[in-house]
């Protein structure tokens, strides 16, 4: 009824590569080799601790900093496992137009440790403009791709990223339609997608609601933005909100704010790592239920959330939230923005009144690094005692809340609850989320 999931927060070894410089295939394989060695070692360690499946990060094998042309030597042609069976370790045939050294190595790592293995690399698909009007001028599609190998080393899943993040568009192509990639194991049904895909419905949400997967495999290269877009908080909130287990492997590059990986259960965080000081990543394992049965929360629309006049407006990651500050030690306050109204009932301890807190509401189209519609209710600490700092990055707090309850009248059923504590640590299983929707804690 259970299995052990593992993630490795890998720091890609990329050497002194120059951005945009085109290297040979041999040089690319030399560059990838130390990363594959880490994958092999960590897989062996995970298996020694009885892991059934291990996930490695997006861009884990060769890092960023490539262009459409300079990423080519790192890529391999990845056949569609839905149309042909292939075990690269047992059958390392040449797959034109590329060799398959990386796929073979990954396959053998999975086979030698008898474990499901998930990795991310570039897929090179040849095309002919005469037969395919969509075929790019350079006669190839390039995809940001997740691959999954079974414990025998067979390639069983291939997923092409649908929602490329900003400058990724110069490197990779977008599939013509979202791919819904699932596979069954003795411990449940899995789906997979990549990084920025998590913000959108297709395929992320539909994998859960339409394809009924139990678990998500999530290679990512996530750059933390506080307060909401911090990797562990955001990804675990999605797992909780969707009612699935979620294995998230982020690359570990603290200088670039790429920190935060974990194994998240449908009912709370199981294990996570977000050490900003550690030079290298970390392996994390946790036992998960094979077939989660999350409680169903009906989001009835709330009425009468009280006084709704805004006090001030402040920017939170490009969005203008309406805020009302917490002036008393305890009380009930509310704020609205467009159709969303939020209400908070709270009580602080007496010695923590000098830090500014506010409740905020946002209902609108977010457009900063992508375009997607948000409805948010939040109770947060402001960065300073100035109102315009509310929504800016802050990671430290001294204020103890004896209790709080946050309610909102959302128009959507897709709500992801999160609670973040001092030092930006996610809170684990010490809050409740219930009908309303209502987020509360003592």
């Amino acid at each position: 009824d259970t299995f052990i999931g593992a993630i490795y927060a890998h720091t890609p070894v990329i050497g002194s590569r120059e951005t945009g410089k085109i290297i040979t295939r041999e040089q690319a394989l030399e560059a990838v080799k130390p990363n594959l060695a880490v994958y092999e070692e960590q897989t062996r360690i995970a298996k020694s601790q009885n892991a059934d499946i291990i996930v490695f990060p997006e861009y884990g094998l060769y890092g960023f900093g490539t262009t459409r042309d300079s990423v080519v030597p790192y890529m391999e042609y990845i056949p569609d496992p839905q149309s042909e069976s292939w075990n690269p370790c047992l059958d390392p045939r040449q797959s034109k137009p590329t060799d398959n050294v990386i796929l073979k190595t990954l396959s053998c790592i999975a086979k030698n440790s008898s474990i499901y293995l998930v990795a991310n690399l570039g897929d090179y698909q040849y095309c002919e403009p005469a037969q395919d009007p969509e075929c790019p001028d350079d006669k190839r599609y390039q995809y940001n791709t997740n691959v999954v190998f079974d414990p025998q080393g067979a390639l069983i899943a291939r997923y092409h990223k649908q929602k490329l993040f900003m400058s990724e568009i110069v490197r990779y192509d977008v599939p013509t339609s979202p791919e819904y990639i699932t596979f069954n194991t003795p411990f449940g049904k899995f789906g997979t997608f990549v990084c920025f895909d998590i913000l959108f419905k297709e395929p992320a949400v539909d994998l859960v609601t339409e394809y009924k997967v139990n678990h998500i495999l999530f290679p990512t290269a996530w750059m933390n933005v506080y307060p909401f877009f911090s990797a562990v908080s955001f990804h675990s909130a999605w797992a909780y909100g969707m009612g699935v287990n979620f294995l998230s492997a982020n690359i570990h590059r603290p200088r670039n704010r790429n920190v935060g990986s974990g194994v998240y259960g449908y009912n709370g965080i199981k294990e996570y790592t977000m050490d900003h000081e550690a030079p290298n990543g970390e392996l994390k394992l946790a036992t998960l239920e094979s077939r989660p049965s999350p409680k169903t929360i009906q989001h009835t629309k709330l009425e009468n959330l009280g006084n709704t006049s805004r006090e001030f407006v402040s920017d939170l990651f490009g969005d203008k939230f309406n805020f009302v500050s917490l002036k008393e030690y305890e009380g009930t306050i509310s704020v609205c923005h467009n159709a969303v109204c939020c209400s908070a009932t709270y009580k602080r301890t007496g010695n923590s009144h000098n830090e500014l807190y506010a409740i905020g509401a946002f209902d609108g189209l977010h457009t900063k690094e992508g375009t997607y519609y948000l409805q948010i209710c939040t109770l947060l600490k402001c960065a300073t005692d100035e109102p315009e700092s509310c929504g800016s990055k802050v990671t430290d707090s001294k204020t103890i809340f004896e209790h709080f309850t946050l309610k909102g009248n959302f128009s959507t059923q897709h709500i992801f609850p999160m609670v973040v504590l001092d030092k930006a640590e996610p809170s684990i299983n010490d809050w409740e989320y219930s009908d309303g929707p209502t987020l509360s804690s003592n």
Partner: peptide, 29 residues
């Protein structure tokens, strides 16, 4: 109960149907 000072509590809602109403921003670099 919470074991540490609170930094942020949030309910982060995504209204996917509204994405389609507004459409996706053209892809840029």
């Amino acid at each position: 109960s919470l074991q540490k000072p609170l930094l942020t509590a949030a309910m982060f809602g995504r209204w996917y149907e509204m994405d389609q109403l507004f459409g996706q921003r053209p892809k840029t670099t």
